[in-house]
Design a protein around this nucleic acid. Structure first.
Length: 570
RNA sequence: GCGCCCGUAGCUCAGUUGGAUAGAGCGUUGGCCUCCGAAGCCAAAGGCCACAGGUUCGAAUCCUGUCGGGCGCGCCA
């Protein structure tokens, strides 16, 4: 029997635990193999969890759902995990966990690693090195959160930053760099540099020709051209590094999987597709037509040049073969959905991805301005991510000093960074990733509701409590006894951390975690409003302190998995 | 034209294999600081879940159609 009610010192997935127990009870009640359908209770008065499986199971077993639900409750008998098991409505089984059970499982907050660790490639961020990172790259946060979550659950995560450092536009940039090298300071603004090169490319035929020859030279490995290209890439990468550092993104140089890396492999990709009989030449271009796809995937241009798709195919193969990935997760803009469907289909057909290697595109939506159009500055330029982050910190700084004028300047700076960056990242990751959202400073830095600040504030209050009491939370080793319903609810909330992480991981939806943390912080503040901690009598005081410590730890860890920091005071 | 995604409170959004009276936050209205941080808590008001059919014990969720929106659709990435 799963779990068996035995006391386990680590985090548990409550949902899985209940699933096992109720499934067994269905069998004991005469319906084997029934799906128990465990979910969090839809209303507080229904308890903590509910099992909705009786209705469906009753049909196949040709019995009455309510009777079956009663049979399940009877089969469970006197269980240690529940205080009450109640049959309600047409056949719901409402489960209220017992204080003793909740208490016993709150001994610590270690995340339970998976029993089936996988090798998971997570592909995210992928800026175009020809330009500066813009507001859209804020969504790097999503992939980064998922990489952290999967890693925390014990998977072997291989981060891959598929930066765009190859192709036509680099011929243009390198040619321009050759000309203006004396004025290289212009490179301080990649955006300006790109615009200058572009203007020349569009208006000057000689330059355009030279740019095209430069691409060919680059791909051929011409040393002089390569040196210029390298110089440009280094400058651009330095810019990315600084943005990642400000944003606290866990991508480093070791995670780079640049397009240029596959340059030499592209002819092999074409040759292998051809020998697999997948290539059709159409209008001079090499295409792969598949029955399941309405449009072909072009893998080589009429002029012999390779495409994004070709590089991606090479990359899939590398990840499958070299990294032996069980799963490859792409956190990429939803506008590329069709591209990925084609890519995956062709990669499968060509045998570039092993049978056991799952390919998954997890799309995200766009960041819009208040006019519901792509977010731009007033002058119509793209918003640079670095500028946006500066502004977030500046606004947070003003807010922090206003609320708390006695903070010294250095601490206020530090808090402003954590709060400002946290607010922006939390906004990005707290919505369903597939939907577009409107970037709105007011909503974001209002710092109310489901925001990072609400969680950071709850955390700071907890830390303040321990400071004030002169207590080290690490000294509280005993599981907290639960003495009232508010405490029990907070306890259950704490126990749900594990199942939340597993759900976020299995669906690649980090907003499950923000929703959970917001609920946890709410349960905590309600507890904190009604239950005195430091002023409570001796045994209760320690138990409540332990609940505070566990909440603080879970908030810190949870925010940490989103790449968001906490502060001791704010 | 075809394909994908979407349409939920005035606004921004949740709604986890179909489950009970559809939930938060903002905003609005009204309460709560001689007590651990009021960046907080409590309460009220606010919904034909775009529309119309269908599937079934049960639909915001699944299917079909209509309307409205976003995005994509062979030599960019």
């Amino acid at each position: 029997m799963a779990g068996g009610g035995s006391l386990h010192p680590r985090r548990m997935n409550l949902r899985s635990f209940l699933h096992g127990r109720i499934e067994a009870a269905f069998e004991a009640a005469g319906v084997a193999g029934a799906e128990p359908m465990i979910g969090v209770a839809t209303r507080p008065e229904f308890g903590d969890y509910q099992a909705n499986g009786a209705m469906a199971a009753a049909r196949t077993a040709r019995t009455q759902p309510r009777k079956l639900a009663e049979g399940v409750v009877e089969a469970l008998g006197d269980v240690d995990f529940a205080e009450t098991l109640a049959v309600a409505g047409p056949g719901f089984v409402n489960i209220t966990l017992s204080p003793a059970f909740v208490s016993a499982h709150l001994a610590n907050v270690e995340i339970e690693p998976t029993l089936h660790p996988e090798r998971i490639v997570v592909d995210y961020s992928a800026p175009n090195l020809a330009k500066e990172m813009h507001v859209g790259h804020l969504r790097t946060t999503i992939g980064d959160a998922m990489a952290r979550i999967l890693e925390a659950l014990g998977h072997h995560v291989i981060r891959q930053n598929h930066v765009g450092d190859w192709g036509t536009q680099f011929g243009m940039l390198v040619a321009h760099l050759e000309d203006v090298q004396e004025a290289a300071p212009e490179l301080k603004d990649l955006e300006v540099f790109y615009a200058q090169a572009r203007r020349r490319f569009d208006s000057d035929n000689d330059f355009a020709d030279r740019a095209r020859r430069t691409v060919v030279a680059l791909q051929r490995g011409d040393e002089r051209v390569r040196a210029y290209w390298r110089r440009f890439i280094d400058i651009s990468l330095a810019h990315c590094r600084s943005v990642y550092e400000i944003l606290d993104i866990t991508l480093g140089d070791e995670d780079l999987d640049a397009e240029s890396r596959y340059n030499d492999d592209l002819p092999n990709v074409i040759a292998d597709l051809e020998s697999a009989g997948l290539v059709t030449v159409d209008d001079g271009a090499k295409c792969v037509f598949l029955d399941e796809l309405e449009t072909p995937l072009i893998v080589q241009k009429r002029d012999g040049g390779y495409l994004y798709a070709t590089t991606d195919l090479a990359s899939v193969r590398y990840r499958s073969e070299h990294y032996r990935a069980d799963r490859i997760l792409y956190f990429v803009d939803s506008r590329q959905s069709l591209h990925f469907r084609q890519l995956f289909a062709v990669a499968r057909k060509a045998g570039f991805a092993r049978e056991t290697c799952k390919l998954e595109h997890h799309p995200f939506g766009a960041i819009l301005g208040r006019d519901n159009r792509p977010f731009k500055t007033r002058s119509g330029d793209v918003v640079k991510l670095a500028d946006l982050l500066d502004e977030a910190v500046r606004r947070a700084r003003a807010l922090v000093t206003e609320r708390n004028p006695e903070l010294d300047s250095e601490e206020a700076d530090r808090i402003a960074r954590v709060v400002g960056i946290g607010a922006v990242k939390y906004t990005d990751v707290s919505k369903h990733r597939a939907s577009d959202y409107v970037f709105d400073w007011d909503a974001m830095l209002n710092f109310d509701g489901n925001t990072a600040l609400y969680l950071q504030y709850a955390y700071a209050r907890i830390r303040s409590l321990f400071r004030r009491g002169g207590i080290d939370p690490r000294c509280l080793t005993d599981a907290p006894a639960i003495s009232n319903d508010t405490e029990r609810r907070l306890g259950v909330s704490l126990l749900r951390f594990q199942e939340t992480l597993e759900q976020a991981a299995s669906e690649a939806l980090p907003h499950y975690l923000t929703g959970y943390l917001h609920g946890l912080a709410g349960d905590f503040t309600r507890f904190y409003e009604t239950c005195p901690v430091l002023n409570a009598p001796a045994p209760v005081r320690d138990h409540r302190l332990k609940l505070c410590a566990l909440t603080g730890e879970t908030l810190r860890k949870g925010l940490g998995l989103l790449g968001i920091g906490t502060v001791e005071r704010m």
